[in-house]
């Protein structure tokens, strides 16, 4: 939903790290993106391609997205299940007493450059 905004945040953050490490060219930026993070990878990549052209350090930087599959946990039957397929309802016992274990991450993992 807010891919362009977060692209600007990512560019600011990695530019700072790039400068601290005396990089003159960042070749790639790797993100970890949960499948229920409300961010669409294709849109993120489109915004990225547009926005990096306006920078010095990231002109040619490729965006690598590592997906993190969403998993929820049921507090009643204590099983873990696929969040995307089942939502909040446990497919094992039908309980709604569940919470997300992982899958809403949106992390900058690493950058590569010289």
């Amino acid at each position: 939903m807010h891919e362009l905004g977060v692209v600007f945040h990512i560019i600011d953050d990695v530019t700072e790290v790039g400068r601290e490490n005396d990089l003159t060219n960042i070749q790639s930026v790797t993100l970890q993106l949960g499948t229920v993070s409300a961010v669409v990878p294709e849109l993120l990549t489109d915004c990225w391609k547009w926005a990096v052209k306006k920078t010095e350090l990231l002109k040619e930087a490729e965006l690598i997205i590592e997906p993190i599959e969403a998993v929820s946990h049921c507090e009643d039957c204590l099983t873990d299940f696929d969040t995307v397929a089942n939502g909040k309802i446990c497919p094992n016992c039908g309980s709604g007493n569940t919470f997300l274990l992982r899958g809403n991450e949106f992390m900058i993992k690493e950058i590569a450059g010289n």
Binding site: I10, G113, N114
Partner: peptide, 15 residues
């Protein structure tokens, strides 16, 4: 120069 990989591991929302 050789390519350096720098680990960041922080949330996009952190700053």
């Amino acid at each position: 120069d050789a390519v350096k990989v720098i680990e960041i591991k922080k949330s996009v929302y952190e700053s």
